[in-house]
Nucleic acid binder design. Structure first.
Lengths: 172, 172
DNA sequence: GTCTATAATTCGATAGAC
DNA sequence: GTCTATCGAATTATAGAC
């Protein structure tokens, strides 16, 4: 192999992006952690944006492929395949979460997990199995997505169904 | 009222943050849209971080209050109250989504909505009621949250339950 | 409370040697 | 392929007049 530097840059960038957010990460930080200089990055990537794009592109391609090259079929099977697909890209999803976390200097990530833990406690009591916890994540996370996707609608048109679906996910 | 400028600054900031992401928004853009100058902002906020914090703080306070000042009770009622609480903060959630969208120059927001639309089509066919669409959002969004919250676990410990809960949310 | 002017820093990016 | 050196632009933040 003539050079794996390009891949190493991407690995370190992914790491830093997930740690502290994309926009909060400078090329200098990336080159420092690699032990090389900033201009060296420009030999492998035309621009900062080119580097970022190269990291997010696989997620885009996989999603595009999934929604196009696929016919109607068993919904359950589709849910399973879809889960496996987004699972492979979970590091990029963590990137987003940590972009939120670094908005201020607020440690929002820690808070977020603590809130979830306590919410699950309120929902299901103190003793919860891992299975119940996962179900609760689907319920609470699914509702959260509704507030984004239907942000423009009146709440009465969203809340009843969203709550109903969340309760079903919980097994209630 | 001695001055509502502080509130107007926050309103414009929230607007721009949701439009183009937090880190991509400069104080100059905020002051420009308000028709004032940048130093004027510093009369009302000690720093840029202080401004951002003042916008995110209500979400933090509401979450803290929700998980503390509340005993165990009817799970269904809790889901409803929780939904109403996060619904009030949906603008902040959109901020995060758009921070993702502006990572590169990729129009990820549009893509995201398009993927969701097509996934719902694959799951439920062409004719979908609004109710089915919301249920699908809970299912797909909930699974997506699992990939973040349990990113460190082996997939076999997450996927079966996550898919099962998603199917239940869909009414399958 | 808002302005003009500017300091201080950081960032992305390039030139050119090796 | 990587380095030193540096440019130009943008950003946060401050000083001081009004």
């Amino acid at each position: 192999m003539p050079s794996d530097t390009k891949a190493r840059i991407q690995a370190v960038a992914r790491e830093l992006f997930a740690e502290q957010g994309v926009r909060n990460t400078s090329l200098r930080q990336i080159s420092d952690r690699l032990g090389i200089t900033k201009p060296a990055l420009y030999y492998h990537f035309a621009s900062r944006e080119d580097l970022v794009r190269s990291i997010v592109q696989p997620l885009i391609d996989d999603h595009d492929r999934f929604v196009t090259a696929r016919g109607p079929g068993d919904p359950r099977e589709l849910l399973e395949d879809y889960f496996e697909m987004i699972w492979r890209h979970r590091q990029v999803f963590v990137m987003v979460l940590n972009d939120l976390a670094t908005l201020g200097q607020l440690d929002l990530t820690d808070r977020l997990f603590d809130w979830r833990r306590r919410l699950v406690g309120l929902l299901l009591g103190a003793d919860v199995t891992q299975e119940q916890r996962i179900r609760a994540t689907v319920a609470l996370g699914g509702m959260s997505d509704c507030t984004v996707e239907y942000a423009g609608l009146p709440i009465e048109e969203v809340k009843p169904t969203a709550v109903h679906a969340a309760a079903a996910a919980l097994g209630l």
